[in-house]
């Protein structure tokens, strides 16, 4: 059987049932929720009505209202857009940038120490401090928060990629390819990069999760997204004072967040198991 055929077969197997399928369904639903938020929402997520604050569950407000009388259901829907954007944006950018830098650092030993010391420099600054400083420098907006969350993630990806490359580089077949004078491009794309895919998927799902959580943390510290841009993180963070009185304000966005992350992680695992060339040997 061809390599591609094998892959397809195993993908079918993996998604044939169980958690992977459920995750895929959940994730699709959340994605649809995010895309069609303006249609599904029953109210403007930013329209305030202080007289209706903390209303509890009503027909008009199926998940109640928050401290400004805004509709929690509509905010959670719109929050899906923002949170997914933050998570996916941070994951894609940090993985892409980190992969390139990491491969260079791991393969070209001359660049290694310069790159790694720079990465050390970025990592040595606590990310939360970097984020707060960036946000107060430019004002809290979606872009600033995204940049502030992504920058500290990059060195982690770089380190991971580099350690994989270092490992692979000492493998006999790669050393052979180098000795035989295969073009660098070929070695990198053929032998190096594929080996980083599996750990990067795991790392990517982690960045996705941690970006959404970091956004919540920034909100908790008063440096997150402005309340006009509802995200699961800032809805939870704004609702936290009501944790014992109106748990829904934390519970609903929290549930959406936990389910989404759960699905992303399960999918990450499944893809990892499926894509990893080494897994073939076990089956």
């Amino acid at each position: 059987m061809t390599r591609r055929g094998l892959l397809l077969r195993r993908l079918r197997l993996a998604f044939g049932g169980g958690p992977a399928l459920v995750s895929l369904v959940i994730l699709t639903l959340v994605l649809l929720m995010a895309v069609f938020a303006p249609l599904l929402a029953t109210a403007d997520p930013t329209a305030i009505a202080p007289a209706d604050r903390l209303s509890g569950l009503t027909i008009e407000h199926p998940l109640g209202t928050d401290a400004y009388g805004r509709d929690v259901y509509s905010r959670v829907l719109h929050g899906a857009r923002v949170s997914l954007l933050v998570g996916a944006g941070a994951a894609l950018v940090s993985v892409a940038v980190g992969l390139v830098i990491g491969v260079f650092a791991g393969y070209f030993r001359a660049l290694d120490s310069v790159i790694m010391r720079t990465m050390d420099g970025i990592m040595a600054i606590p990310s939360i401090l970097l984020a707060i400083a960036l946000i107060s420098l430019t004002g809290a907006s979606l872009l600033t928060v995204l940049v502030a969350i992504t920058i500290p993630e990059i060195p982690r990806v770089v380190r991971l990629v580099r350690s994989v490359i270092l490992n692979v580089r000492s493998e006999a077949y790669v050393e052979a390819a180098i000795t035989l004078g295969s073009p660098v491009r070929r070695i990198l794309l053929r032998h190096m990069v594929p080996n980083t895919v599996a750990p990067l998927i795991v790392q990517g799902t982690f960045v996705f999760a941690s970006a959404i959580l970091t956004e919540a943390t920034l909100s908790f510290l008063g440096a997150g997204l402005p309340t006009e841009i509802p995200s699961w993180g800032n809805i939870m963070s704004e609702g936290r004072s009501y944790f014992q009185l109106f748990p829904g304000l934390v519970l609903w966005p929290g549930l959406a967040l936990a389910l989404t992350l759960l699905s992303v992680n399960v999918l990450g695992d499944v893809l990892r198991d499926t894509l990893d060339p080494k897994m073939e040997k076990r089956t």
Partner: peptide
């Protein structure tokens, strides 16, 4: 194990903290 570990980073620390305290 995997479900537990995923839950571990699906919840912001301040929520975990509040629940534990409560």
């Amino acid at each position: 194990v995997m479900a537990l570990s995923v839950l571990g980073f699906s919840v912001p620390i301040f929520v975990t903290g509040y629940v534990l305290i409560y």
